[in-house]
Amino acid sequence: MDNSRSSPHWAPSPALITLGWSAAALALAALFFSSDSRGRVLFGLAALLLAAASAHGSLVRPRLAADDQGLHVRSLHGRVHLSWTETRTRLRTTRRLGRDAETLEIENGDQLFIFSRLELGTDPRDVLDVLTALRP
């Protein structure tokens, strides 16, 4: 959780975004220095995917915020305000590749927002605890 504002908000870690941009730059450099045509295609795809993921993490900050009125979710399509009375939050645990992965699910009518640890920059369980404490 980032405490630089009065209301709690969560976003991808700046270190992770920096790492993504750096990896995209390395893949782009490898693209230009590779002599193998198949390798160039793979490096180009890697650079494109890493840059897209890093740009998403850079542009949609904060990803989730909460205040007395409700939740604010930010995506590439804009911001969505969800009031507390119409919102249901829960933690979902899924077993993948022999490891438990936790996600925070926020349901509002026919909308479902799913946040992982990477998107929130912290453990979804901690975010749920804060949201539960804020809920009127």
Rank of each mutant, 00 (worst) to 15 (best):
D2I: 08
D2A: 05
D2K: 09
N3E: 10
R5S: 14
S6W: 02
A11Y: 05
A11E: 11
P12L: 02
P12T: 00
P14W: 08
A15F: 07
A15S: 04
A15T: 07
I17R: 05
I17G: 00
T18S: 03
T18Y: 01
L19Q: 06
L19W: 00
G20L: 14
G20H: 00
A24Y: 00
A24F: 01
L26Y: 05
A27Y: 01
A27S: 15
L28P: 02
L28S: 13
A29V: 14
A29K: 00
A30K: 03
A30W: 04
A30N: 10
L31I: 02
L31T: 14
L31V: 12
F32Y: 13
F33K: 07
S34C: 13
S35G: 15
S35L: 13
D36M: 08
S37Y: 14
R38P: 01
R38D: 09
R38S: 11
G39T: 15
R40Y: 07
V41N: 02
V41L: 14
L42P: 02
F43N: 13
F43C: 15
L45D: 07
L45V: 15
L45S: 11
A47M: 08
L49G: 13
L49C: 14
L50T: 02
L50C: 10
S54G: 14
A55V: 13
A55P: 03
A55H: 08
H56P: 00
H56E: 15
G57N: 06
G57I: 06
S58E: 03
S58T: 15
V60S: 03
R61S: 02
R61L: 07
P62G: 08
P62K: 08
R63F: 09
L64S: 10
L64F: 06
L64Y: 09
A65V: 11
A66W: 03
D68H: 06
Q69P: 00
Q69F: 04
G70N: 06
H72D: 04
V73G: 06
H77V: 10
H77G: 09
V80R: 15
S83H: 07
S83W: 00
T85L: 09
E86D: 15
E86R: 13
T87Q: 06
R90F: 13
L91N: 05
L91Y: 10
R92G: 01
T93M: 04
T94F: 02
T94G: 01
R95V: 14
R95Q: 14
R96W: 01
L97I: 00
L97C: 01
R99A: 13
E102W: 11
T103R: 10
T103W: 00
L104S: 06
E105P: 07
E105Y: 04
E105F: 08
I106S: 07
E107D: 12
G109F: 02
G109D: 12
D110G: 01
Q111V: 03
Q111N: 10
Q111H: 08
F113V: 04
I114C: 08
R117I: 00
R117H: 12
E119M: 11
L120N: 11
L120K: 05
G121N: 06
G121S: 04
D123Q: 14
D123S: 14
P124G: 09
P124I: 11
R125N: 11
R125P: 05
R125M: 06
D126W: 06
D126C: 05
D126S: 11
L128P: 08
L128G: 05
D129Y: 09
V130T: 15
A133S: 14
R135G: 04
R135C: 10
P136I: 01
